[in-house]
Nucleic acid binder design. Structure first.
Length: 489
DNA sequence: CCCAGCACGC
DNA sequence: GACGTACGTGCTGGGT
């Protein structure tokens, strides 16, 4: 199959994504928005000779729409000074994504069969245990039935409500476990974990293996996430479990193709490094230039203790602050994350901003910029309109402010990895390498590598990822190799 | 068929 | 007094 178009082309959907990433990018919506008429949806693929006059006219209008949109959208991108994101990133990335999708990834199906048996058995056991306590059958997959069971039949204290009834999510169940009032919440937590793994991954992934290639072929959407990130679907390979050991095991099933090995490369703390670069905060810059443990450094400043006296809790607190920073987290959010009082959380945040004043002024500046210009912008000129920043509704405005903070950081990280992917793919081709880039997970790339090329690939990948852009902080990439996605170390 | 609730990733 | 950290995909149940 030929997937290397050398002709110049214009992608209406991708251009529209550059101009207004939050809208829909199908041709009929764009045509209506910019040309003011509706194109007729032609059903099925017919030969033109088999078309009625009306259908031929509709087809002509569609072609005319695309031609007109090309000029209008190109001019609009220029006006927005966003052509770089389109010409240098999104367009050249398209064929890279196509190549990754076609290449696919191998799945060890017998391993998944084993897991299915194991997990199904656990599900059955928990269900039986619950029936012993409840007397009659409760569908544990139904939040409604679970809520009635916990809070009406067992009379457990109601922790929180949703708009339709009792909340039974993991946070609620964990609180019930802590209260030590019933064995059921803990059973439900285990049930939910295993059921999730089973239904979303263990059963679903083998079923989607392509009959011809025998591999899993995800589909990357380059115009779906308003920040400029990619998304992955059918199946989503950007949310394969890693957090719990039980879930992480699923990664053992993602294996290198025959005779090859997997190579992973991920950006270390890329978003925090971008925050350091953008804010030019002395303390942060110093930490990254010296390749120090950023969370430990942050903890030392926030809690005003010497570096070597930083406790595990303090480091965790600093990590949560660093994490929340980029999302515009509030003291409430931080208090929830750390299970501390809101007052305590507020003190942490105040102390943080006292010690990292340039970060504070940078984040405030992002909000101001959004107020003045109406959008957030990345290093490569990718813009995201934020009309809600002018809202008189405080909640809506606050949400827009968080987006104004997060989008430039998340979006720039997305821009950078896109550029790295384009450059890596170019070099793989130029050097006639047989190794292939197969997956992208936001700040991580995975390659299916010919063993003889492993050392060459390692150097190539790290150089292109770390060198994609030159910032005032170094970008750092960590690599791992192994025969499956679990063992990449 | 669509929405709610829930849970997985970064 | 309510609200309360960004960006996604996809499962099941349950109501229409």
């Amino acid at each position: 199959m030929k997937i290397d178009p050398t002709f110049k082309y214009f992608d209406v959907a991708q251009a529209h994504f550059i101009i207004n990433p939050e809208y829909r990018h199908d041709l009929s919506t764009i045509t209506e928005e910019f040309l003011g008429f509706k194109i007729v949806d032609l059903k099925g693929q017919k030969d033109m000779l088999g078309m009625s006059d009306e259908e031929v006219q509709a087809l002509g209008e569609k072609a005319q729409a695309i031609l007109s949109l090309h000029k209008i959208l190109r001019a609009k991108m220029k006006e927005l000074d966003a052509e770089r994101a389109y010409d240098d990133l999104d367009i050249p990335l398209i064929k890279v994504l196509a190549s990754m999708e076609l290449e696919g990834v191998c799945l060890n199906t017998s391993f998944y069969k084993e897991l299915e048996g194991e997990f199904s058995k656990q599900i059955d056991e928990i269900e039986a245990d619950v029936i012993k306590i409840s007397g009659d059958k409760v569908n544990l997959r139904s939040p409604k039935q679970v809520g009635e069971f916990l809070f009406e039949k067992l009379q457990l204290p109601v922790i929180r409500k949703t708009k339709t009834g009792y909340s039974t999510d993991a946070e609620v169940l964990n609180e019930l476990v802590a209260l030590n009032v019933s064995p059921v919440p803990e059973m439900l937590l285990r049930y939910r974990e295993v059921e999730k793994l089973l239904s979303t991954y263990v059963k679903a992934l083998p079923a989607i293996i392509h009959p011809k290639t025998g591999k899993i072929h995800t589909h990357y959407q380059p115009s779906n996430a308003a920040t400029g990130r990619l998304s992955s679907d059918n199946p989503n390979l950007q949310n394969i479990p890693v957090r719990t050991e039980n879930g992480r095991k699923l990664r053992k099933g993602f294996v290198a193709s025959k005779g090859r090995t997997l190579l992973s490369a991920d950006y270390s703390q890329v978003e925090l490094r971008l925050l350091a670069h953008f804010s030019q905060d002395e303390n942060m810059l110093k930490a990254f230039k010296n390749d120090l443990d950023i969370h430990r450094q942050t903890a030392a400043e926030v809690f005003e203790v010497p570096l070597e006296k930083v406790t595990k809790d303090q480091r965790n607190g600093a990590k949560a602050i660093n994490f929340g920073l980029m999302y515009g987290q509030t003291s409430f959010g931080l208090s929830q994350a750390l299970r501390i009082s809101q007052g305590e959380a507020k003190k942490y945040i105040t102390s943080y901003f006292n010690n990292f004043q340039s970060v504070k002024s940078y984040l405030d500046g992002l909000k101001e910029l959004a107020e003045q210009t109406g959008y957030a912008v990345t290093l490569f000129g990718r813009k995201r309109n934020l009309p809600d920043i002018k809202s008189t509704n405080r909640q809506i405005k606050a949400m827009a402010e968080r987006v104004a903070i997060n989008s430039p950081i998340q979006g720039t990280a997305a821009d950078i990895i896109k550029l790295a992917m384009i450059n890596i793919q170019d070099l793989i081709k130029k050097r006639n390498l047989k190794s292939r880039m197969i997956l992208q997970v936001h700040d991580e790339l995975i390659f299916d590598v010919v063993p003889e090329e492993l050392e060459v690939m390692k150097v190539l990948v790290v150089e292109q990822m770390e060198g994609a852009v030159s910032l005032t902080v170094p970008l750092k990439v960590e690599m791992g190799t192994g025969n499956n996605w679990y063992d990449l170390k």
